[in-house]
Write a protein that binds this DNA or RNA. Structure first.
Lengths: 185, 185
DNA sequence: AAATTCGTTAAGAAAAAATTTAACAAACTG
DNA sequence: CAGTTTGTTAAATTTTTTCTTAACGAATTT
């Protein structure tokens, strides 16, 4: 293999980084994270820690954009503020363990789904119950109410399961069933 | 409790349905499904099966919108075409088992993530390797390459785990560890 | 205390996405 | 085979989202 000069090596290195940054940003995009936040996280993933000025330098967007993006990333647990003495600038570091980003992203999402839907189901079932138990209501309507009640009730099995999944991810229990390593292949 | 006349009962029933439809549509919206597709699926969830004309009637959008939405829903496994003889119209039925929608939605998403990112990592590692093994390159650059290599290599543990998660969901194995029912509470 | 640095927020501009209108093509009907 | 019905696709419009510019306020420095 040809030996590289430093300029070539640096280019190769940047190419490699861009490859990874592109893939991560695209994935996040797919998951509903805004492009700026996706690019920012992907960039930070390959850096130790960054302040806002370094971010806009590296990502090539405005400071306002970096400011809002970094907050979004904090909210989904992808980035944490780190306190460095000696500078007034806020510095942040990316969470680089994908098991942790997976956990905070999906657990947050799923918990929201569960509570939102269970609330609606609860309310709907109460209404349906009143129809079902009122014998003065036309049979046809009561029959439909019963069917919907049955379907909604079945859905609760799923929501409870999802809640258990969240719990087992948060506690780490899931890794007893599905261990992290599988080095071969 | 007051006894209901049929009009009131029907209203109550519609209210209950709207409650559930709203929650499901909002959830799907959150997951990157377009509003039209979300509302459509939520509507179909409470119906046996529907053709395009019934959809636009019920959802209140255009036929073109229903046509594209129903295809999106098919692609993510939320809706299946059902063949009914006697009519030229295409009829579709919603997948009502949320375990199944969960499975097709996330497995598809995760598989895409894994293959996209592993490809990028593979490529990047090859480049980094060339830098690392070239002793003529400046130590500083090689050192950075080594760090990135290490990080990328670590990320593969996560992608392999995600792939195993997909497999265990697809096979149903996961339900041995996390059973579906938990009736009490 | 005036001037500067730093980060956030609000308003406006630009870009992207979703939906509708309209043109089309395929399959059926009379 | 002319005329419908049905579903899809392309172009145009509307709506929504994202990003930037610019104004602001708090903290710091001189």
């Amino acid at each position: 293999m040809e030996s590289l000069n430093n300029k070539e090596a640096r280019e190769k290195l940047e190419f490699a980084k861009d490859q990874v940054i592109g893939a991560i940003a695209e994935t996040m995009d797919l998951y509903g994270v805004t492009p700026a936040a996706g690019r920012l996280y992907a960039t930070m993933y390959l850096e130790d820690k960054m302040n806002l000025d370094e971010m806009l330098e590296e990502v090539g967007m405005t400071k306002a954009s970096m400011s809002t993006s970094v907050r979004k990333l904090q909210n989904i647990g992808y980035v944490k503020r780190v306190y460095t003495r000696g500078t007034r600038k806020h510095t942040y570091a990316a969470e680089k363990n994908f098991f942790n980003t997976f956990m905070s992203f999906y657990c947050q999402q799923w918990e929201r789904e569960v509570s939102m839907n269970l609330d609606a189901v609860q309310l709907a079932e109460k209404e349906l119950d009143e129809i079902i138990n009122d014998e003065s209501v036309a049979e046809e309507i009561r029959e439909e109410a019963k069917e919907h009640y049955k379907l909604l009730n079945e859905s609760k099995v799923y929501y409870r399961w999802l809640r258990k999944l969240v719990a087992s991810i948060r506690s780490g229990e899931i890794f007893e069933f599905l261990p992290k390593e599988n080095e071969d292949t």
